[in-house]
């Protein structure tokens, strides 16, 4: 299997997300960065499939040059080839622009090395959450796409994918090549091993430049949602609070 996984570098916030003075970006001065969680699981899934069925995992990201860090991390957990499509404008491209940049890169990668059997995306990115880049890519490539995937089995003809729904799952049976939007929970991503760390240092990153057409969607401002200030009622500071808690449960009619 030849698998492409598209990932995004995102900040790793704690309990509050602050914005820059111009209100156009998240203030990342005191934040680390990570791979968007759904996509971290997509890389793990691809690595597991290739371990079972052979092949290779190419990881592609669109972002600033610092996104090399996320590609090197992918190298430490089993990915074998790496593409960084630079966007050094300091602000994310809109979903269509991002999709266009990926579509162009896929066309070149496939012309050089052959078709990808599977292209994995995260269901949505942790930060902007546009819910569409993978689907726009799939539609442009004319390939089937299903989002919300929490299980993939590779068969002779294609793949069986499980999509989580309330109380169970739906089963999709897709011929390859196919595009899947993966959700966290499909697996528990591995930690890098010593061997992985070495692979990460040696990984060769192919850098790509691209020109994208002006985007339709313009970001004007990032801001905090209006917070309703909550007066927390402290019911107690020990297990003696139990009667008050049960009173509350009775009051709410859940007992």
């Amino acid at each position: 299997m030849r698998i492409l996984v598209c990932v995004k570098r995102v900040p790793a916030p704690g309990s509050r997300i602050n914005v820059t003075p111009d209100s156009l970006n998240v203030d990342t001065n005191h934040l680390g960065f990570t791979t968007s969680p759904h996509e971290e699981c997509a890389v793990e899934e691809a690595a597991q499939i290739v371990e079972q069925h052979g092949g290779g995992v190419t990881v592609l990201t669109v972002g600033p040059s610092e996104a090399e860090e996320q590609l090197r991390y992918a190298a430490s957990v089993g990915a074998t080839a790496f593409v960084l499509v630079s966007n050094d404008t300091g602000i994310d491209w809109d979903p269509q622009q991002t999709a266009d940049a990926i579509i162009e890169s896929i066309a070149e990668l496939e012309a050089d090395q052959g078709q990808f059997d599977l292209i994995l995306f995260g269901n949505e990115s942790a930060d902007s959450g546009g819910h569409q880049v993978g689907i726009r890519v799939a539609v442009a490539l004319g390939r089937p796409a299903v989002n919300g995937i929490k299980g993939i089995e590779v068969g002779v003809q294609g793949v069986t994918a499980r999509r989580e729904v309330d109380g169970g799952y739906e089963v999709y049976s897709l011929e390859i090549p196919a595009v899947l939007g993966v959700k966290e929970g499909i697996n528990l991503p591995r930690y890098p091993t010593m061997k992985g760390r070495l692979a990460s240092k040696k990984a060769e990153i192919s850098a790509r430049e691209t020109q994208v057409a002006p985007g339709a969607q313009q970001r004007r401002r990032l801001h905090q949602p209006e917070e309703t200030v909550i007066e927390t009622e402290i019911l107690g500071t020990s297990s003696d609070a139990a009667p008050k808690i049960v009173d509350l449960l009775e009051e709410l009619g859940v007992l």
Binding site: P13, V19, S128, Q217, Q218, R220, R221, L222, Q224
Partner: peptide, 11 residues
């Protein structure tokens, strides 16, 4: 954005 912890105004 961020599942609702941050809002984005777009045009």
């Amino acid at each position: 954005q961020w599942g609702g912890s941050l809002l984005e105004d777009v045009t």
